[in-house]
């Protein structure tokens, strides 16, 4: 079959491969090269070596965005996963009508980031009005606003994955734990949690990458205000491309660093899932 199929490359693979080259492969290689260049438009490019990379590590805005992103990611990964697991645990205890709750909790996940940002801007500003401030008054408000928004959006999604994980635990395992005299808490810590570890890994990395790469929500909620203090990395990179009259080389260099960090996270994930597979 291979032989007769082989000459069909233009029919089967070419459209996807061509589109992939135009929208990913060529821009990626160009982007790598441009991170070592000084340019305002692509027509006037001069090679400057690692100057851009030296410059961005002296750029306070960038370092601040990096730190803000890390803090935000850690806090939202923990809160989202804990709350999602608790909800999933409650919803898998055989109550009636849980489907309705599942549907409700999952809904925010389908709403786009820009719209989410504006929904929460009005609500958070409405609450802060009682203290006579707005969300752009202090970076603290922007930070917790983003955390709340992200929780609201992702808890339902992670909950669904945890529910699938919990439902996959063989019933007899839980029953035999009960026969052996394990209480509800013991069963939770010694049977349920170890058995859903694969789901935990998935959810941790999904929330990790989603939080780390966040753009739309950040853009709509605070747009980095005040003074760019609530800028996350993706927004900081965006602004160094489109809100600058100077060289865009630094923006591209920031993007390369961003890519490397995300790459490391993905690599860790790969190793973590591989190890799990070996254990099983």
């Amino acid at each position: 079959m291979q032989k007769s199929l082989k000459k069909y490359f233009p029919v089967f693979a070419l459209p996807t491969v061509a589109a992939f080259c135009v929208s990913f492969l060529i821009p990626f290689v160009m982007g790598l090269y441009l991170s070592f260049c000084k340019f305002t438009t692509i027509k006037k490019v001069s090679f400057v070596g690692i100057k851009n990379f030296v410059a961005i590590f002296a750029d306070e805005g960038f370092l601040n965005a990096l730190w803000f992103t890390v803090k935000f990611t850690v806090v939202s990964v923990i809160t989202i996963n804990v709350l999602a697991f608790v909800l999933a645990y409650i919803l898998t205890r055989g109550l009636k009508g849980t489907n309705l709750f599942r549907t409700t909790f999952f809904t925010p996940n389908l709403i786009g980031g820009i719209v989410l940002g504006y929904i929460w801007q009005i609500i958070i500003n409405g609450v802060l009005k009682y203290f006579d401030v707005t969300i752009t008054y202090s970076a603290k408000y922007g930070f917790w606003g983003l955390v709340i928004l992200m929780n609201w959006q992702l808890i339902g999604y992670m909950m669904i994955i945890y529910i699938a994980g919990i439902q996959n635990i063989p019933k007899d395992l839980i029953d035999s734990a009960a026969v052996d005299g394990a209480g509800r808490l013991k069963t939770l810590t010694n049977v349920t949690i170890p058995m859903v570890m694969p789901s935990v890994t998935i959810c941790l990395f999904l929330t990790l990458t989603n939080s780390f790469k966040l753009f739309d929500q950040n853009y709509a909620l605070t747009d980095g205000a005040p003074n760019g203090e609530t800028q996350m990395l993706a927004l900081n990179i965006f602004k160094s491309f489109y809100n600058t009259s100077g060289s865009k080389g630094t923006g591209q260099a920031k993007a390369v660093i961003f890519f490397l960090i995300v790459g490391v996270i993905a690599f860790i994930q790969l190793v973590a899932t591989r190890n799990k597979e070996v254990e099983n």
Partner: peptide, 29 residues
């Protein structure tokens, strides 16, 4: 090709956004 496709999944959009939008406008897309 397969590994390239898999690789592209981990590359954040910011990495290619500037060059990709340039290329897209050059190609009248």
């Amino acid at each position: 090709l397969y590994y390239l496709f898999v690789f592209s999944m981990i590359v954040p959009f910011q990495m290619v956004m500037f060059t990709m939008s340039y290329l897209a406008s050059k190609l009248h897309l």
